[in-house]
């Protein structure tokens, strides 16, 4: 990790509420609090992973940074600009610096355009290179992501899942971004292919000092790729720390439960059993106090009434639990 410089991306008090459809005009308007007041930063050339179960708000956070949704409240500082306040037109300048890779990049792609047309278009929109240099750049990109040069002439459906993800990466790289948001980018891939893509992402990071926000539900993948890890639950950050600190000293009961729930393909790893029961509550009416109290085996009345602040436990290790120090399991 680098020394604490000014982060490339800094998110402050981000809130993302979605209004529910009203059943009758007399009903009170209800909101899904998908992301509810979170703050974090990502330093240049590092990877921050956002983990959590479905409905925790990890993808929503990614979408807010990309301004695919307009945040309800909060600031998103990127290279000295607050993305949350930029107009649609101003956003266009920033779009080239922040790229995204989705689970299936081809779900959003025109099946009748070749890879060449696709790359050409994205380079043209961002205007990163003079036209004469684009051809060379495209060949370079293919080499970078490990695809044969003739892939440029082919159509999306001619590629396998792993290759598609490589093309997704090539497209993201084509505009020379500073940061890439990977939203479950390797989740749909088979393990042998997943490893190839993860290696590629790491290689590119070293080569271009790339910054990643890596959204995933798979903690072993996250451990491999990240420098810092942020654990979310019901729209809140429950713990954020450097990778080793988080894995060696998980401090929030939810983080512990999450870690203990992962089946490990290693017979010698003794897992500490923390069982959490029940389902994730609805983000429309999240539980009072600490949002995790309904499933937490250690919850007290204090937890039920007072929402814990995210506080620093160790250097750079933040946790949102009243009893983080006392719970050593």
């Amino acid at each position: 990790m680098k020394a604490a410089t000014k982060p490339l991306l800094e998110v402050k008090h981000l809130k993302q509420y979605f209004s529910m459809k009203k059943e009758s005009p007399f009903q009170k308007k209800q909101y899904v609090k998908a992301v509810d007041d979170i703050s974090f930063g990502v330093e240049e050339g590092t990877t921050l992973s956002i983990v959590g179960e479905s409905g925790c708000g990890k993808s929503t956070t990614g979408r807010a940074i990309l301004r695919l949704d307009d945040p309800t409240e909060g600031e998103i500082h990127f290279q000295g600009r607050d993305l949350a306040k930029l107009s649609r037109r101003e956003l266009k300048d920033v779009r080239g610096d922040i790229q995204v890779i989705f689970q299936d990049p081809f779900a959003s792609l025109n099946p009748r355009r070749t890879i060449r047309q696709m790359l050409n278009e994205s380079m043209k929109i961002q205007d990163v290179l003079p036209k004469s240099d684009r051809e060379g750049r495209m060949l370079e990109l293919m080499t970078l992501v490990g695809l044969p040069p003739d892939s440029l002439e082919r159509l999306p459906h001619e590629f396998s899942g792993g290759q598609r993800q490589r093309i997704g990466i090539a497209r993201a790289l084509s505009v020379n971004p500073k940061m890439i948001i990977c939203d479950e980018a390797v989740s749909a891939l088979d393990v042998s292919i997943q490893a190839q893509v993860l290696n590629l992402l790491k290689k590119l990071q070293k080569q271009f000092n790339m910054t990643y926000v890596f959204i995933s539900h798979d903690l072993s993948v996250v451990r491999h790729i990240s420098d810092r890890i942020m654990v979310m639950y019901l729209g809140k950050i429950v713990e954020i720390a450097d990778k080793h600190s988080l894995f060696n000293k998980p401090s929030h009961p939810y983080t512990k439960a999450l870690l203990s729930a992962i089946p490990v393909p290693d017979l010698d790893v003794a897992r500490k059993e923390i069982e959490i029961t029940g389902d994730v509550p609805s983000p429309i009416n999240p539980p009072s106090g600490c949002r995790f109290h309904t499933r937490c085996p250690f919850a007290t009345d204090h937890c039920r009434n007072i929402e814990p602040e995210l506080r620093e436990l160790d250097d750079g290790h933040l946790v949102g639990c009243h009893y983080a120090e006392k719970l050593s399991i």
């Binding site: 393990v191 042998s192 490893a195 993860l198 903690l219 072993s220 451990r223 290693d266």
Partner: peptide
């Protein structure tokens, strides 16, 4: 062996994963 090696480990640091080349 390849399958087991290509899995990222939950309790171990690896610089690079031993990926199997190619696909099914």
């Amino acid at each position: 062996k390849g399958l087991l090696q290509s899995l990222p480990k939950l309790y171990e640091d690896q610089e690079e994963l031993q990926a199997m080349e190619g696909s099914i």
